[in-house]
């Protein structure tokens, strides 16, 4: 049988992922919490998947397993054709830059001791890029996320919440990832900043064929942002919502696509100027 065409192969496939957190030492009573229970997912290149669920549903554990910070107890994570759960540390270090995570708490996630430039260029420094190419990449990343060059030498505590979240996105973009995991990345920001960053993410997705996994509590945001969604409860996927169902259920907030957002923004700029 002929293999399916390349476009239909998912970028990320999660099969039967299980993770149980165990608390307590061998001499104490142990508490086991099932964080992930046979989770199956698939995400195609250039698409967005929203993972929705209440606190403690296992959303962040899923992100940690995908990024390689937690080792799953069972199951497989197949990313870009490779089973990353079986990769050794050295090979994982090569794959990890292709999956990047943006945290909710940008104030905490950016080192207060480093400047914006140092934060963004760090993955390139590790990759052994020279100073000139690092400078160029940092400039491009700042430009992509809409930050002025004057931010380059400032420190995270000197920036606003929205600017910090943009720096976090710029840092995630520098290693040229294929998948960006947004762990409540817009929570805690005011609505106008949320809108700006959502627009930015749509633009990046259309320019670079990026895939997103958006972890959120907010169903409206999931409907506006994602192509499909899964609902997690106690580590299990209890509901899958595809694009058609999202459009049917949330017609008023349904995602309008990058071009519509760009047009809106251009109109707003024109009106403002």
């Amino acid at each position: 049988m002929a293999p399916p065409p390349r476009e239909t192969q998912p970028l990320l496939e999660v099969r039967g992922l299980c993770k149980t957190h165990v608390q307590g030492h061998w001499w104490q009573r142990r508490f086991e919490t099932i964080a992930l229970d046979h989770v199956d997912l698939a995400l195609c290149a250039g698409k967005t998947l929203a993972v929705v669920g209440e606190s403690g549903a296992g959303k962040t554990t899923l992100a940690m397993c995908l990024i390689g910070l937690e080792k799953p107890d069972a199951g497989q994570i197949i990313f870009d054709g490779a089973n990353i759960t079986e990769l050794r540390r050295h090979s994982k270090m090569r794959t990890c830059p292709r999956i990047q995570l943006v945290f909710q708490d940008s104030a905490g996630a950016l080192s207060p001791r480093m400047s914006v430039e140092e934060i963004i260029e760090e993955p390139l420094l590790i990759a052994g890029k020279d100073r000139a190419s690092r400078w160029k990449s940092v400039s491009r990343a700042l430009d992509q996320v809409g930050l002025p060059g004057s931010c380059r030498h400032r420190r995270p505590q000197e920036l606003s919440g929205g600017q910090r979240q943009r720096v976090a996105i710029a840092r995630a973009l520098v290693p040229e990832p294929k998948l960006l995991i947004l762990d409540e990345a817009l929570a805690g920001l005011d609505l106008s900043i949320q809108g700006q960053i959502t627009n930015l993410l749509f633009d990046l997705q259309s320019e670079q064929t990026l895939s997103f996994i958006s972890i959120t509590h907010d169903l409206n945001h999931a409907a506006r942002f994602a192509d499909e969604a899964v609902v997690l409860q106690r580590g299990r996927i209890i509901h899958r919502i595809d694009a058609a169902e999202i459009a049917r259920t949330f017609p008023s907030v349904r995602r309008q696509g990058p071009s519509a957002f760009a047009a809106q923004r251009a109109a707003a700029t024109g009106a403002g100027g």
């Binding site: 990024i67 708490d105 996630a109 207060p112």
Partner: peptide, 22 residues
């Protein structure tokens, strides 16, 4: 245990650099 070191690990920064630089 601070969030920024956690974030650096998530971004694939090597362990030795995380200890010394972060």
């Amino acid at each position: 245990d601070s969030p920024c070191v956690h974030a650096a690990r998530a971004h694939g920064i090597p362990r030795s650099r995380i200890l010394c630089r972060h």
